[in-house]
């Protein structure tokens, strides 16, 4: 079976192989461009995330896909579901905002807190957890805007389970990647 494929490969020549590699790379590059473009529009580093834990059940289950935005001119409000990443923790967490405290600017007199208070203190909690997230903050007292990746605006169930499956069974990932690569090289069009 492979001898046959090798024969076609030899017949088509080096140029064809190079062309296929170019095609493959351009597919990858356009995917990356779409991802980064979405990130620019929504102002978050990852506009689409997959839920990895059950701490927001029954709202979000493992494998659900969330669409995030992070408008720079909008404050976070209680009830917003935010994705945050505190320094020292490697996995971003999807939890709901429980408390917001918009600090007034310190300095020359007291200025009332603007709706875009730059220093907003946040406390979050998972719907399925009994207590708030203070223990998850790695020593921080409050979350701040700089820790927030974005807030959840849209929801699509189950679709992200593919990535979880690929993480749980790495063989699947390699099989998929290898298969795709082989197809891209061999396919003649």
């Amino acid at each position: 079976m492979f001898a046959d494929e090798l024969k076609t490969l030899r017949r088509l020549g080096v140029r064809h192989v190079l062309l296929q590699i170019l095609n493959f790379v351009s597919v990858l590059a356009s995917g990356l461009m779409i991802w980064k473009g979405l990130g620019l529009i929504t102002n978050t580093e990852s506009p689409i995330v997959v839920v990895l834990s059950g701490s927001m059940e029954p709202a979000f289950y493992r494998g659900d896909l969330l669409f995030l935005t992070n408008p720079p001119n909008q404050r976070y409000e209680t009830g917003d579901i935010t994705v945050y990443k505190v320094p020292g923790a490697d996995i971003p967490i999807v939890h709901r905002v429980l408390e917001t405290h918009d600090l007034a600017k310190r300095g020359k007199g007291l200025v009332p807190a603007s709706p875009l208070a730059p220093n907003q203190l946040l406390l979050t909690k998972g719907d399925n957890n009994h207590v708030d997230d203070l223990e998850l903050y790695q020593g921080l007292e409050w979350l701040e805007r700089k820790h927030i990746v974005g807030k959840v605006r849209g929801f699509l169930p189950y679709v992200g389970y593919v990535t979880i499956a690929m993480n749980d069974f790495p063989q699947l990932k390699y099989a998929l990647l290898g298969g795709l690569g082989l197809l891209a090289l061999i396919q003649r069009e």
Binding site: E77, T78, L98, E99, T100, H101, D102, A104
Partner: peptide, 17 residues
């Protein structure tokens, strides 16, 4: 959710569930 909204004397706007 039931939230308390208030602004304290220091000008901090609070919203607590």
């Amino acid at each position: 959710y039931v939230a308390a909204e208030y602004e304290n004397k220091q000008g901090t706007k609070n919203d607590v569930v």
